[in-house]
Amino acid sequence: MNCSIVIRAYNEEKHIGRLLEGIKQQTVKDVDVILVDSGSTDSTVAIAESYGARIVKIRPEEFTFGRSLNYGVKEAKRELVVIASAHVYPVYPDWLETLLRPFQDESIALTYGKQRGPEFAKFSEQQIFHQWYPDVSKPKQETAFCNNANAAIRKSLWEKNNYDETLTGLEDLAWAKWAKEQGHAITYVAEAEIIHVHNETPRGVYNRYRREAMALRRIYPEAHFNFYDFLRLTVTNILSDLWHAARERALLKNISSIFWFRTMQFHGTRMGHRETSLVTPQLRETFYYARERKMKDEKKRDVAPIKYKR
């Protein structure tokens, strides 16, 4: 089993080394690592080169999420292409092995794995990770939901349909939607777990959800999100987070971030939606709705996690 790994990066010297070290410790050894750098001014490129990564550069003024991925996938030497954000790192040494295993089924076009935040992640962000990435795998899932922070695709299918370079985000969802429309399948692999480091300001959270909502409207023109949705989902998600935080005896230290995070999340979502219409219930639940979960519901694996030096 072999693969190429495409990593998009901009000034990621704080995180890129841990990802590359995690790749080095994988059970899959035959890997071709490509770093797509969009103008880093720190030591990101030097660190990547020290691990043997090939560097592909894109000018900052040309950057879009889809375009940077297209640059990287084009350079990939292998049929199976793993896509990872520069600020993630694998938990287990069989991350690649488990993420790639479903491709033994020729109908699988894309796989994506579990994401969790580091210990210092905002409480609401952790709730979203639990909501979107459960402990149970989903072979051939019903929706097109996926996430390119931790995913893999077939290059031969990408050659038929490149990532949309005009979207403000969710280029992964657009590609997955196309793949399903062509009769291919998507698999969620819970065992392929990574830690995803987000440490955003309120403005950063607002901008992320605003651009993703703008992209969602392009992909699903029938989508809508009005002021009532903003109020309802802000309130219900804040209450859900407060309840979970109280159960986990973490309310006091998280109460402030819960309020601002959820407010910025859904304010950004509302501003990104400029028109009102309908969206599939499955997709609305995936993106917006808090789900009930058990406290301390993490499934333990028999695989020892990677021990990082830093």
Rank of each mutant, 00 (worst) to 15 (best):
C3H: 04
L35N: 09
E21F: 03
A48T: 12
L35V: 09
D30C: 12
K14T: 13
T27F: 11
K29R: 08
N2A: 11
S38E: 14
I7C: 00
A46N: 15
L35M: 07
C3E: 00
I34E: 00
L20Y: 01
D32M: 00
S4T: 03
E12C: 07
Q25R: 06
D42P: 00
E13R: 13
K29L: 05
G22S: 04
Q26G: 07
V28S: 02
V33W: 13
H15V: 06
I47C: 06
V6Y: 02
C3D: 02
S38H: 08
M1D: 12
H15L: 07
C3V: 01
T41N: 15
N2Q: 14
Q26S: 13
I47Q: 09
N2W: 08
E12K: 11
S4R: 03
I7A: 07
I34R: 01
L35R: 13
V33P: 05
V33C: 13
A48C: 03
S4P: 10
E13Y: 11
A46W: 06
A46S: 15
Q26I: 04
E13F: 11
S40C: 07
G22P: 14
T44W: 08
R18N: 01
V45F: 04
R18K: 06
C3G: 03
A46D: 14
I7P: 01
I23Y: 05
N11H: 09
I34C: 01
E12Y: 04
G17E: 13
I47N: 11
I5F: 03
A46R: 14
V45P: 06
I47F: 07
N11G: 06
I34W: 02
V28R: 01
Q26C: 06
S38R: 10
E12M: 13
S4M: 00
K24P: 02
